[in-house]
Design a protein around this nucleic acid. Structure first.
Lengths: 215, 215
DNA sequence: TTTCGTAGTAGACGGTGTCAACCTAGGCAC
DNA sequence: GTGCCTAGGTTGACACCGTCTACTACGAAA
């Protein structure tokens, strides 16, 4: 068995199982973003942390934007799954409320993912269609929910009207979430007593806005 | 007068009037951001466009973030001025509505400034206190407006309550504005008939949410 | 066995922010 | 006037970055 010809100890560099480096890159990239912000993400740093050449990650991601798009895609997936996971009662009123809570919960529990989805400039939208497809899915879940509500005051219940109300709800919830995790809130002094009612009050106002529980 | 020693024709490089280069930098930086996005802003490109050495801008701005902070500060200024400029009737209901419209108008008329204020990661907040001070001013204008409204249903009219409602209004308007100019809207197909009612519907829902015109 | 695609390495290029040192015209005390 | 100081420029270097290109090792398929 002594095949002498072996080139002198070409250390076979412990070949990774397929897909391993790609996953490792995503993991490491997330760690970098979490620690230093998305603008500090560099594929070279990712490679360095993984003890691999600066070009290795490019075998799995066409460009820096592509690894970002991959990460954002996964964020949309996990977001939609989170919204889907909550128990439904079948009563539209209640289910919409629970969706609002789930939305905000997600933003609080996964600030990194939330910020990636809504708070930072995305990698050029139409260069990453699969990413945007997943974004659309999340909104359609909200839209479905609104369609189950009785027509709100001032509306005839047309599809256009429902769409507009879905956008109202989305605006408010998204606005709140993005304010909550932005740098803005600490600089406006939030009164002590208001802090824990921030979310419930906003959801209540949404309900009033849609004409629920009114008068 | 023939001082022979003159180093050969040191072309006196037409000294700018004081403050001129700084202004020129801001102007050029804005142009770059408008054309290619904030992440493409580079002080070297600014310098290049102005026909000046790559270090010249650093005489006026400590770092890339500092020129960005300067630009964002000015955006907050112009935003507050815009909100202030609208005519007031003294009737709280109406004045709040006109503020909402002015808010959205500003976001539509100055998308660049709006995105800089609310849509992109700001240069580290507490490294640029003067910038954040101007941000606070804008919110306080909204807060003042809310304080003039009659107490909304579900509230006793305490300061905490008012603050929460201000945040509700801000969330919704900010959320709408940020959705309007994000990449998200084109990917969810907005029904034709809904397009021009996007804003008015949202403002109406805010009104209902605060208990105005109800029933 | 040969061939070929995959996953990795290595080097170069031009771009970037930023540090350091240097130059120079003007303003001001004398 | 003379001399000095400083604000506002200059050039040069450094260490990063993304990305292009060429090369290598290897496993599986033919």
């Amino acid at each position: 068995m002594s095949t002498v010809e072996q080139p002198p100890a070409k250390q076979t560099r412990a070949r990774r199982p397929r897909g391993d480096l790609k996953e490792a890159c995503v993991r490491e990239a997330l760690a970098i973003i979490e620690k230093d912000g998305v603008e500090k993400l560099s594929l070279r740093e990712v490679a360095r942390r993984l003890g691999v050449s600066h070009q290795a990650p490019y075998k799995h991601f066409q460009s820096r934007d592509h690894i970002l798009a991959e990460i954002v895609s996964r964020a949309y997936d996990s977001f939609a799954a989170y919204l889907d996971a909550r128990p439904l009662t079948g009563e539209p009123d209640h289910d919409l409320g629970s969706m609002g809570i789930a939305y905000i919960d997600y933003a609080k529990a996964h600030p990194l993912q939330y910020r990636l989805m809504f708070g930072t400039p995305l990698p050029d939208a139409d260069a990453h269609p699969e990413m945007m497809a997943k974004a659309r899915h999340a909104f359609s879940m909200l839209l479905d929910m609104i369609y189950r509500l009785p027509p709100a005051p001032g509306h005839d219940g047309t599809d256009d009207d429902r769409f507009l109300d879905a956008l109202f709800v989305w605006s408010t919830v998204h606005g709140l979430a993005s304010i909550l995790e932005s740098d803005a809130l600490p600089t406006i002094a939030v009164p002590e007593g208001a802090r824990e009612r921030l979310i419930s009050n906003t959801l209540m106002r949404i309900g009033f806005g849609l004409g629920q529980h009114r008068c």
